[in-house]
Nucleic acid binder design. Structure first.
Lengths: 237, 237
DNA sequence: CGTAAAATTGATATTTCTCAATGAGAGTGG
DNA sequence: CCACTCTCATTGAGAAATATCAATTTTACG
């Protein structure tokens, strides 16, 4: 589903009371800078399934995810899909070298982003090394996550992939919703399969298996970790 | 094999005639900066199989690879290994958020690195945003490569993995040795297997299959691409 | 409610792995 | 210089994991 998103009326939105203010890329800006920065971004909403940008599109904007979840993925010519990550509020998207996006991004459920036109954003960074440093920090963190995910994709069994995914996703949600054994899974089974390098059937069977073994409870819209220690053991570190 | 490497006598080495001067991280420095920079790095050699740094080690240095090839990898507790990349001259290693390396790095054959102590290097960057920008550029490029590799690991068959690997490795060597259908493979079959998420037997069998089909020729220390177009077709984009 | 999409489950097929044996090349010491 | 040994690579046979195909079941949504 390709849609262009809906720009929200600009009034009434201030960076200073933005939900992701403290951990997004803009956390490196001081109040004065923030007021200037405010004019660069505009809030745009996307509804479930809409594509925010596509691989190979020329990059015209960067995006700061404010609300919701996005799937970031690459397609092979024959349609096989690999989800390279899920984005959560505070994630910064769109950096690249080639001038083109190197993956596609869809909204999973309703999404709000703060969109920055590439050129003014680039100019703003120009003489603000602390912002650049912050962007670099985020890139390096992502790189580390990407490497962890390579280990999962290349060297873990289906059971381990599922267990590790549940724990890792739970961990990422801590900063959003606090610690909990209830792990909401807004993405579809197919999304999970394409993230873990499995088929939808294997994902489903593995969830069922974990449930039968009493490690988890499959609930509407997510998973309840009945025995987190057991799931951790299954994840093999 | 863990070894500490051998520092070469500092005389006689100038950044200005460094082999990787034009495409490494230091390409962003002007001649005056370069003279200052020169004092920060020291050349260190490692012999085949030596470990330059290990995952979870506290990061005390950054490394600029000058000569040779390195394997970058992560281990699971039970010994399974995933190679997350091969480093070539000009690659910059050691950036991280946590203060610890997030992968290990071994020399494949003899290796020379330019080693920078973390603190002085950090101070040098401090007021040189162009160097930071260059580092950021390298990180973003690596991130893009990492995502491509996720697609390979998660969604490609053994045949496609091998074909894609040969082409991708050849492509990376272009900047070192120019275009050629002869693709040197300094790493072992086990390394290739651990990079592609396969076993050594599958790698071996797949090479043999490609050779029987006339697509490649297995030669000592590498592969000869007899029919590059065919290999490209096998790689499925 | 009724229809479509998503998820689950089962039966079977295929790929890749595992285990085991053999072969080839590099370095060593007699 | 040659046998020896060690490591690495190749090959084969059988096993295991996961994919594929097909049928339900469940959930979502108009």
């Amino acid at each position: 589903m390709k849609g262009s998103g809906v720009t929200i009326e600009p009034n009434g939105h201030f960076c200073s009371d933005c939900a992701v203010r403290d951990f997004a890329v803009c956390s490196s800006l001081d109040p004065a800078e923030l007021r200037e920065f405010e004019h660069l971004g505009r809030r745009v909403q996307f509804s479930s399934g809409e594509t925010v940008f596509s691989e190979e599109d020329i990059t015209t904007s960067f995006y700061n995810l404010l609300e919701g979840v996005m799937r970031l993925y690459k397609l092979l010519p024959d349609g096989r899909r690999q989800i390279v990550g899920f984005a959560l509020p505070g994630d910064f998207l769109g950096m690249n070298i080639s001038g083109r996006h190197n993956f596609s991004a869809d909204a999973i459920g309703a999404v709000t982003v703060c969109q920055f036109a590439k050129l003014p954003f680039g100019r703003f960074i120009e003489d603000r090394p602390h912002l650049l440093r912050r962007i670099n920090e985020l890139a390096i963190r992502e790189l580390s996550q990407a490497r962890d995910h390579m280990v999962l994709l290349g060297r873990r069994s289906a059971d381990e992939k599922i267990a590790a995914f549940l724990l890792c996703w739970r961990e990422r949600l801590v900063s959003q919703k606090g610690v909990s054994d209830m792990v909401p899974l807004p993405m579809s089974r197919q999304d999970i399969a394409d993230y873990l390098g499995l088929t939808i059937e294997t994902v489903s069977r593995t969830f069922t298996k974990l449930e039968r073994h009493g490690a988890i409870d499959i609930v509407h819209g997510g998973i309840n970790l009945l025995d987190p220690a057991r799931v951790e053991a299954l994840a093999a570190a």
